[in-house]
Design a protein around this nucleic acid. Structure first.
Length: 653
RNA sequence: GCCAGCUUAGCUCAGAUGGUAGAGCAACUGAUUCGUAAUCAGUAGGUCGUCAGUUCAAUUCUGACAGCUGGCUCCA
C-alpha cells in the first residue's frame, strides 16, 4: 500500500509499504538514520483521525500517513515519561518483590508511580531504584504489547496478588485489555510505549510522598515515587536547574532575607506577620487597588469580622462550610468568624431598596477572612488560615451580566499585564451536585462564554468543575520561570441573592432579583505577594519596592550631606534610606544589591562638590552623576512606567 | 487530617555509641575613613521544638504532642 511518511520538518514523501509491515517499518522506508533513531512512537493518520501507535504495531490498513513522534513532541515526551514510570515499577519490583503496583502516569513535570508497600519508601531508597532503572535501560529490553480477555487479565493479576491492578481492569469498559511486558515486569496499559528501554536515557527520581488510592482520603495510603525524564541529558539538566531556581526564589526564604514577613508557627500556624518593609509593599499594593477599583465604578465597603450563627445558617455556610470556620461564643450565642465576605455584602445591599438605575452595584472589600485549613496544607504565604481577599460582589440585572464579566476580565487583564504575567482562561461548567434552575445555569454559562469570546480570548472548558451555586471563570497566570498559579476567579452565584431575598425595582415597577458576580482578581494579598516575590525573585519593580533607593556615603566625611540628600529625595516622593555604617563602599554596595534595592546612590567627595549623587542601577550598571532632582525624577519615572500600557496610574504617598 | 522526612544560636549547618554543645554568616563593641558585591580584632548569644517515660545521669534512647518540609486530599 501507498502511504506518505512525514519527517520531522513536516515534509512528506510517498512510500510503498508491503502488507503486514509495522508502523516502524513504514518510518524506516521514509526517514533518514538520525530521525529514525529519535522516533519513540508513530503518529498514524487515517480516515478515523490521528492516533499514536507503537513502532512495533502493525500499520493499520486505512493509514494515510505516518510520522515519527519524538521527545520534542509533547505527546512523545509524555510517552517517554510513562515508559520510564514502567521501568521504575520494574526496578521497584526487582528490589522490593512484595511491592504491589497501582498506577504510574506521566504528569506535566515528569511522572510518578504509586505502590502499596509494607514500609513506605524514603528518599534513601531512591538511589538504589534509580541504579536498577539504569540497569534495565542498559539491558535495552523491548516493551512487548499483548492483548487479553478482560476476565483473564483480572484472574492473572489476582493470581499475582496484584489486587489493585485487578480492580482497575475490572472497572474497564471493554472485552479485551492491552498489557505491556518490559523484561519480567508486566503491566496493564493502554500504551503506546517506547520500543525498547534503551531509549530512556535521561531520567531522575526526585521525591517520595504518600498518596491515597484513587485520590480518595478514605482509601489506603500508597507510597508514591516522583521522577522526571527528558529526551536528552541537556533537557533534564535544564529542568533540574529550573527546580533549583525555584528553590532560590522561594518566597519563604526571600521574605525572611528581605525582611518582608515572617511566621511564628508555634503560636500562629498559617498566619503571617508583616514586617515594616513587607507591610509597606502591601500598603502600596492596597492603595493602588482601592484607587483602581474606585476608578472602575466600585464602591468600597466593609463588613464585620464575626457574625451570628443564624446568618451563616441562612447563607448556607453553616451547612456547607462549617468544618472550615472558626466559632466563638458571646453571651451564650454562637458567632462565626467570616470565611468569606459575601454575607456582609448581602446585608449592605439590603440596607436600601434599589432601583434598576443604581445597578450594577459593585461592592469592593479588602476582606480579611479566616478559614480553618488542614494543618498539612499550609504553605508559607501561598496557603494560610487568615488572608485578605481583594473581593467584590457585583449585583446586576441579568441583561447586564455579560458586560460586567467583560469589565472584570479587563481589570484582571490590566493587572496581570502590569505585573508581567501571561495567563490562560478556564471556564468551569455545572457540576453534578449543583443547585439552581437549568435556565439560570444556561444564562450564566453562556454569559461567561460570550464575554470571553467577545474579548477574543482563547479559553478552555472544565466540564463540571464549577461551584455548586454557579459557573466560573478561573484565570491561571504563568510566572517568570514558567510556573502556573490560579489567582483571579469570577463566579456567578444565584443562590445568595435568593437566600437573602435581594431585590431591585425594575422599569416596570415590579421587584426583580439581581444576579450576583463574585470575583477576586489577585485572589488574596498574602498569596499574591508570595507569588510576586517568587515571580520577581525579590527584585520588586520600583513602584512596589519598599525601599526604592539607598544612599551610600563613601566615608564619614559625607555623612551630613548624605542625610540632607535623603531628606530632599524623600520630599520629592522617593522611598529612600541611608546606610550610615562605617563600612567600605564595596561592602555597602554588596549589601544593597543583595537587598535588591532598585537604586544605589553613592555620595563621596566628588558628589558633595557637585551637589548630586552617583547612580548605580540594580542591574549593576553605573548610570553616572545626577543632581538630586534628576535622580528623583528618574526614580519616579521608573515607578510610573509599568502603568502606561493599561491606562492606569500610580501614586503613593 | 493522612504518608514520609525533619526540628541544635537570628540564618545556614556540624556534633557526641547517654556525662548539659561548636563553625561560618548576622548582631554588638572597638580600631580603620576606605569610590561600586565581603577591612581587621574582640564580645555576646543555646532549658539542643514541648511534655512525659527509662536511667545515677537524656539534647542523645522510648512515647505522646506541636511545628516545618515534600506530597495526597482540599484550596484564595
Amino acid at each position: 500500500m501507498q502511504i506518505s511518511v512525514i519527517n520531522a520538518g513536516g515534509e512528506s514523501g510517498s512510500v510503498e509499504v508491503p502488507s503486514g509491515a509495522s508502523c516502524g517499518d513504514a518510518l524506516k522506508l521514509g526517514l533518514s538514520g538520525k530521525q529514525l533513531r529519535a522516533a519513540l512512537a508513530a503518529r498514524v493518520a487515517s480516515a478515523g483521525g490521528e492516533r499514536l501507535c507503537d513502532l512495533s504495531a502493525p500499520l493499520p490498513g486505512d493509514a494515510r500517513s505516518v510520522a515519527p513522534v519524538t521527545a520534542d513532541d509533547p505527546d512523545g515526551l509524555a510517552l517517554l515519561r510513562h515508559s520510564v514510570s514502567h521501568i521504575m515499577a520494574a526496578a521497584v519490583q526487582r528490589l522490593f518483590p512484595h511491592a504491589r503496583v497501582t498506577i504510574g502516569p506521566s504528569i506535566d513535570s515528569g511522572f510518578y508511580y504509586d505502590f502499596d508497600v509494607e514500609r513506605p519508601f524514603t528518599v534513601e531508597d531512591l538511589p538504589a531504584i534509580e541504579e536498577e532503572m539504569r540497569r534495565i535501560a542498559a539491558e535495552d529490553v523491548p516493551f512487548v504489547r499483548s492483548e487479553m480477555k478482560k476476565a483473564d487479565a483480572v484472574k492473572l493479576f489476582e493470581s499475582r496478588g496484584e489486587n489493585y491492578k485487578a480492580e482497575i481492569i475490572g472497572g474497564i469498559d471493554a472485552d479485551t485489555v492491552s498489557l505491556y511486558r518490559c523484561g519480567e515486569f508486566l503491566d496493564l496499559c493502554r500504551g503506546p510505549h517506547l520500543p525498547r528501554t534503551g531509549l530512556a536515557k535521561a531520567f531522575k527520581l526526585l521525591s517520595v510522598a504518600g498518596a491515597y488510592w484513587r485520590g480518595d482520603e478514605k482509601n489506603p495510603m500508597l507510597s508514591r515515587i516522583y521522577g522526571t525524564a527528558f529526551g536528552d541529558e541537556k533537557a533534564l539538566k535544564a529542568h533540574l536547574e529550573r527546580l533549583e531556581e525555584a528553590r532560590r526564589r522561594d518566597h519563604r526564604k526571600l521574605g525572611r532575607e528581605l525582611d518582608l514577613f515572617c511566621f511564628h508557627e508555634d503560636v500562629a500556624p498559617g498566619m503571617s506577620f508583616w514586617l515594616p518593609r513587607g507591610m509597606l509593599l502591601r500598603t502600596i499594593l492596597e492603595d493602588f487597588l482601592r484607587r483602581e477599583h474606585l476608578k472602575r465604578g466600585y464602591e468600597i465597603v466593609q463588613g464585620p469580622q464575626i457574625l451570628r450563627r443564624e446568618l451563616w445558617e441562612k447563607s448556607g455556610h453553616y451547612d456547607h462550610y462549617r468544618a472550615n470556620m472558626y466559632f466563638t461564643e458571646i453571651e451564650g450565642d454562637v458567632h462565626g468568624v467570616k470565611p468569606m465576605n459575601c454575607v456582609g455584602h448581602m446585608l449592605i445591599y439590603n440596607q436600601h431598596l434599589h432601583s434598576y438605575r443604581e445597578l450594577p452595584m459593585r461592592l469592593f472589600e479588602l476582606g480579611v477572612v479566616h478559614r480553618h485549613e488542614k494543618s498539612g496544607t499550609l504553605h508559607g504565604l501561598l496557603r494560610v488560615r487568615q488572608f485578605t481577599q481583594d473581593d467584590a460582589h457585583i449585583l446586576c440585572a441579568p441583561e447586564q451580566l455579560e458586560e460586567e464579566i467583560i469589565g472584570v476580565m479587563h481589570l484582571s487583564a490590566d493587572l496581570m499585564d502590569l505585573f508581567g504575567f501571561s495567563y490562560r482562561i478556564f471556564i468551569s461548567t455545572r457540576p453534578d451536585d449543583s443547585i439552581g434552575s437549568d435556565e439560570a445555569w444556561e444564562l450564566a454559562t453562556s454569559a461567561l462564554i460570550k464575554a470571553v469570546e467577545k474579548e477574543g480570548k482563547p479559553y478552555q472548558i472544565n466540564e463540571g468543575d464549577g461551584a455548586f451555586y454557579g459557573p466560573k471563570i478561573d484565570i491561571k497566570v504563568t510566572d517568570a520561570i514558567g510556573r502556573e498559579w490560579q489567582l483571579s476567579t469570577i463566579q456567578v452565584d444565584f443562590t445568595l441573592p435568593e437566600r437573602f431575598n435581594l431585590e431591585y425595582v425594575g422599569q416596570d415597577g415590579e421587584r426583580h432579583r439581581p444576579v450576583m458576580v463574585h470575583r477576586a482578581i489577585l485572589g488574596s494579598l498574602e498569596r499574591f505577594i508570595g507569588v510576586l516575590t517568587e515571580h520577581y525573585a525579590g527584585a520588586f519593580p520600583t513602584w512596589l519596592a519598599p525601599v526604592q533607593a539607598r544612599i551610600l556615603n563613601v566615608t564619614d566625611a559625607q555623612l551630613d550631606y548624605a542625610k540632607k540628600a535623603r531628606e530632599r529625595l524623600a520630599a520629592l516622593g522617593v522611598r529612600v534610606e541611608v546606610d550610615t555604617r562605617n563600612e567600605k563602599l564595596g561592602f555597602k554596595v554588596r549589601e544593597a544589591q543583595l537587598a535588591k534595592i532598585p537604586y544605589i546612590l553613592v555620595v563621596g567627595d566628588r558628589e558633595v562638590q557637585d551637589e548630586g549623587v552617583n547612580v548605580r542601577l540594580r542591574s549593576g550598571e553605573n548610570a553616572g552623576f545626577h543632581t538630586v532632582e534628576d535622580a528623583a525624577a528618574m526614580i519616579r519615572a521608573d515607578s510610573e512606567e509599568p502603568f502606561k500600557r493599561g491606562g492606569m496610574s500610580y501614586s503613593f504617598s
